[in-house]
Amino acid sequence: MKRRYFIQQTTAAAALTTIGGITLPSFKASEKATKITILHTNDVHSHIDPFGPEDGRNPNKGGVARRASLVQSIRNENPNTLLLDAGDIFQGTPYFNYYGGEIEFKLMSKLKYDAATIGNHDFDNGIDGLYAQLPHAEFAFLSANYDFSNTIMDTHVKPYKVFKRDGIKIGVFGLGIMLDGLVLKDLYKETVYLNPTEIAQDMSRILKEEEHCDLVICLSHLGYNYTNYPERPSDLKLAASTKNIDLIIGGHTHTFLPKPTITKNIEGKNVLVNQVGCYGINLGRIDFFFDIDKNKTVNGTSIIV
């Protein structure tokens, strides 16, 4: 009910800008409330088919065909939707062993994924194996802290991408986990891992101050939190040591959260951290509501999880 009241109020507040008899319909977009929907997955690990009814852990859960219909119904409801993946697309079912990731990328393209970051298992067929599947991917690969300059992946991965939806600028950047000790050097070759915290500070500044993004999203494969290794970079540590990031979409640790985590950044402002387990058995959904009425932000942005 609260939401309906909110929408009604903002629609009533919107008026057409007319100056000297000239109507400029192209500016209409900025005058109404805008909703940006972010959908996300992580660690799908080649799980294309749903788990069977006899599965011990996730019976009848998951499946790309079901995810496709869910994503489509959400897009029908709100065309201003981005679909993102936080890495480890590859490895986990024989589909990967037989086809090397081709089906995974083709399906993600059919679902119109907008961007993905690169997980450690995406190197499982070597950096050449990842490169070989790129022609099947019609979405962006984002990683700001993997330097691919001396590899075959050079120029095929961007640090960030800015999406514009209904006048709202959404900056998305990617972060990957330390490869040494996790992935064989033979597989990742000359990929250079850079400090994710420093890179994230840099990226969030660029996206906020230079690209003037309204929303800054980090697609991370660092892992949610490492209580036994407090020095290890993680999403919660990243949130606490950066500013201007609105949402961190995580992966790697296969963390099932009862609800998205609200935590504080270095300035004491709220950051949302979310991860949806693994194997495509969940879809994360975060809706961002924008309004020209400044009165609504007088008490800060409200977060409902």
């Binding site: 609800k259 879809l283 009425d293």
Partner: peptide, 10 residues
């Protein structure tokens, strides 16, 4: 436009 509200779920 200002960010007024965020809703998150799984």
């Amino acid at each position: 436009q200002h960010l007024t509200r965020i809703e998150g779920k799984q």
